[in-house]
Design a protein around this nucleic acid. Structure first.
Length: 253
DNA sequence: AACGTGGTCAACCGCGGTCGC
DNA sequence: TGCGACCGCGGTTGACCACGT
């Protein structure tokens, strides 16, 4: 879950992100966008590699990120898309706004994979006994239309979700258990995250676009950002007049 | 109460793709 | 066309936590 902080051979920090690092990264990206992940940590005052910053932003700090508490609809979407696309987590994530590929991947490995495997095993072991239960099954099938007319995997996953959510008290109880602990974890980290972002959140913070298009109109925000340790990027997004008027030698970059 | 074990999830690593020169 | 830099993806790791013994 949380890695012990350490440094690589370049002195760059690894492991757990601190609230201060989160604050710096979020503040920087919110003001300047992610113009170059490799260079970004240097200008944001972070002793991290670009990859680490990107990952942290995409999976945790990005606005509208949803965490934990997967709905049955989301599970169903993941299962269906996984059947179609395989382990293309980023492609699956496109269909689940607010969910990162990493989180979906984790959720698959921790919850859905097992469910799908169990279903597949049960399905294959039941193969021989199906013939004995045709009457019963036919009645059930008719209640959900003709979706089992072909061996479509999508339908298989729909069944997985429906069965686990409706008919299996054991499954649902374990789901409750896992979601409960997830909530606990979330609450703990929500505090952590709120703590980290408290200083930079002011009402419209997250609703403000962080994309670079808006930067020219917000050039007046640059000075305060520099005051708190951020350095503007050498990018076309920032006015050259502003840059030339600023004493960059004052900062260690 | 202490220990072992499995589940969970944040983060790291390595590889392949893309883009610019 | 070749090469290097960068990005994004997927697999894997490692630490914490909850639960069982």
């Amino acid at each position: 879950m949380v890695r012990t902080p350490s440094c690589d051979e370049n002195g760059r920090k690894k492991g757990t992100w601190t609230p201060e690092e989160d604050r710096k990264l979020a503040a920087y990206i919110t003001k300047y966008g992610y113009w170059n992940w490799r260079q970004l940590p240097k200008y944001a005052g972070l002793a991290r590699c670009g990859k680490s910053c990107r990952l942290r932003w995409m999976n945790y700090l990005r606005p509208n990120v949803k965490r934990g508490n997967y709905t049955k609809e989301e599970d169903e979407i993941i299962l269906n898309l996984h059947t179609q696309l395989g382990n293309k987590w980023s492609a699956i994530a496109v269909h689940l706004p607010g969910r990162s590929d990493n989180e979906i991947k984790n959720h698959w490995h921790t919850a859905l994979k097992k469910r799908a495997t169990n279903y597949a095993a049960a399905n294959s072991s039941d193969e021989s006994s199906k013939k004995c239960n045709t009457n019963k099954n036919n009645k059930r099938k008719s209640s959900v239309g003709n979706q089992n007319a072909s061996p479509n995997n999508n339908n298989m996953h729909e069944n997985i979700v429906l069965e686990s959510s409706q008919c299996s008290p054991k499954e649902s109880s374990s789901e409750e258990l896992s979601s409960y602990s997830t909530v606990d974890y979330q609450q703990k980290h929500k505090v952590y995250q709120e703590e980290a972002l408290e200083e930079i959140t002011s009402g419209s913070f997250w609703t403000e676009p962080f994309i670079v298009e808006s930067f020219n109109s917000k050039i007046d925000l640059l000075a305060p950002s520099i005051d708190c340790g951020l350095v503007c990027p050498p990018s076309p997004f920032i006015g050259h007049e502003f840059l030339s008027s600023f004493d960059f030698d004052h900062y260690n970059w």
